[in-house]
């Protein structure tokens, strides 16, 4: 399956803007941004993304909690998820993968290569 539709969940407006730009213009994906885990849960059904990018640390419902909710709901249970986090330690990647994430992208990310990073992870799981 081709990667086309990405839902990006991130609470920071600056990062939202640069990620949208990078994924749309460099990667050519269709991108919708959500500012919170709750908003993502409300949006995910209609948008039906191929992939969800989830920031780990968000106020309220954080990334792992959002993932749990997604997994608990059959229509969204199998949508692949990539975490984004500012702290990536080797064992952390394994922890997030144990929770069911495809992989982890470290912040700060490089806007020039973000799309390529996402595509690479996508291709690996395909």
């Amino acid at each position: 399956m081709n990667l086309q539709r990405i839902l990006y969940v991130e609470d920071e407006p600056d990062i939202q803007a640069v990620a949208k730009l990078a994924l749309e213009m460099v990667g050519g994906y269709q991108v919708i941004i959500c500012s919170s885990g709750q908003q993502a849960l409300d949006t995910v059904g209609d948008f039906a993304p191929d992939l969800i990018l989830l920031d780990v640390m968000m106020p309220g419902m954080d990334g792992p909690a959002t993932l749990q909710k997604l997994r608990a709901n059959p229509p969204t249970a199998s949508i692949p998820v990539i975490f984004l986090t500012a702290k990536v330690q080797p064992n952390e990647v394994a922890q997030y993968q144990a929770l069911g994430a495809l992989n982890v992208i470290a912040k700060p990310f490089d806007p020039m290569t973000l799309a390529a990073q996402v595509q690479k992870i996508w291709d690996q799981q395909a």
Binding site: A86, F109, P111
Partner: peptide, 9 residues
């Protein structure tokens, strides 16, 4: 934490 995660971008 936020600054650390965004500055480089």
């Amino acid at each position: 934490h936020k600054l650390a995660g965004s500055g480089g971008t």
